[in-house]
Simulated scan of single mutants.
Amino acid sequence: MTLPTFHEHMLPTLETLSDGQEKSLNEIRETVADMLDISPEDRSDMVPSGKCPRYVDRVNWSVAYFKQAMLVEAVRRGVYKITNRGRDLLGTNPSQIDRQLLMQYPEFVKFITPNNSKTSSDTQTSASAADDTPSTPQELIDDGYQKIVDELADTILSTVKNCSPEFFERLVVDLLLAMGYGGSRQEAGTVTRQGSDEGIDGIINEDRLGLDVIYVQAKRWEGAVSRPEIQKFAGALQGQRAKKGIFITTSTFSNAAYDFTKSIDSKIILIDGIRLSKLMIEHNVGVSTSDTYVIKRIDSDYFHDL
């Protein structure tokens, strides 16, 4: 089942309060999820940031929008009640509530319009644009961030493919160190480049104490790495009496390669080019911060006496 859109969450959210009773935000969320018959799998579907389930985010923003449009009111912290305006709207039997519909309320127009001095035509344009985007503000931020990350990952991968074998060697070591392996560069272990395949082979300590080691191989390839290459790597692990290995490539792995890693006793992790570039972003290797945006939420504990 496909999770209903943000707009499709709105009408059930307001209908949940139609009996006039005060209800907590958690009650509203669960009732809406039941009304929309959201499956357990879809209830666990998280927003891209991983902060909360997507349906929870959509109900939260529905309530927030209704509050701005004065369709509901907060009677106390985290508890809401429908207003006369909200009942009047439900009395029109709307087939759907969306942001364009809410633009009939001046309070919501003021809230949704970044510049309150806009002309009426500008406001109409804003309403149309809002209706064309059935996503919550959090989803828009997360989706925009993910697009930036994906574009950056592609750029990183293209750059890595063009770097020298020596630089690629340092890059892999830097990434493993940033991920917590080896402790320091001096403690990391030994990594030696094999010029014949422009990859690297070596070992790195799994931890700062060197209680275990991990065998590493990396290849700057264009085509998919096939099963025979992983079989050779597994044989190298046996020769080193090692049970853990990381195989890194700038390209991809074949399905047979992945299947092979599941059929052997040794633990071999396959990192393809896309995952390599995203790990570099996650652990700040080869990237720098361009802009920082801090999203704040109300501190309920601060208002505990209200």
Rank of each mutant, 00 (worst) to 15 (best):
F6A: 00
F6L: 01
F6S: 00
E8R: 02
P12N: 01
L14Y: 00
T16M: 09
L17N: 02
S18L: 01
D19V: 08
G20K: 06
Q21N: 11
I28V: 15
S39Q: 08
S39M: 09
R43F: 05
S44T: 08
D45E: 14
D45A: 12
S49Y: 02
R58Y: 05
N60G: 10
W61K: 05
S62I: 00
S62E: 01
A64K: 11
Y65S: 05
Q68F: 02
R76M: 11
R77P: 02
V79F: 05
Y80C: 05
I82D: 01
I82L: 05
R85V: 00
R87E: 06
L89G: 00
L89Q: 00
G91V: 02
N93G: 03
S95Q: 10
Q96N: 08
Q96D: 04
L101W: 02
M103K: 08
Q104R: 15
Q104D: 13
F108H: 06
F108T: 04
K110A: 14
F111R: 08
I112A: 14
P114A: 11
K118Y: 13
S120T: 12
A129V: 10
A129Y: 11
A129M: 13
A130Y: 08
T133R: 12
S135E: 09
S135C: 09
L140F: 00
L140C: 06
I141E: 04
D142P: 07
G144F: 01
Y145A: 12
K147H: 10
K147F: 07
I148Q: 09
L152P: 03
L152C: 12
L152Q: 13
L152N: 13
A153Q: 06
T155Y: 04
V160S: 04
V160Y: 04
S164Q: 11
F167N: 13
V172W: 01
A178M: 03
G182T: 04
Q186C: 01
Q186A: 12
G189N: 05
T190Y: 07
V191F: 09
V191R: 09
E198Q: 13
I200C: 07
I200G: 02
I204L: 10
E206Q: 09
E206W: 06
G210F: 06
D212Y: 14
V213N: 13
Q217C: 15
A218I: 10
R220P: 10
A224S: 15
S226Y: 04
S226F: 03
P228A: 12
I230V: 15
Q231S: 12
K232R: 15
K232I: 10
F233S: 13
F233W: 13
A236F: 11
A236E: 15
Q238A: 15
Q240R: 15
R241I: 08
R241Q: 14
K244P: 07
F247P: 08
I248H: 09
T250F: 11
S254V: 09
D259W: 00
F260Y: 15
D265N: 14
I268T: 05
I269H: 10
D272Q: 08
D272F: 08
R275Y: 00
S277I: 04
L279Q: 07
E282K: 13
H283K: 08
V285D: 07
G286P: 02
G286I: 05
S290F: 08
Y293V: 07
R297G: 11
S300W: 06
D305S: 15
L306W: 06
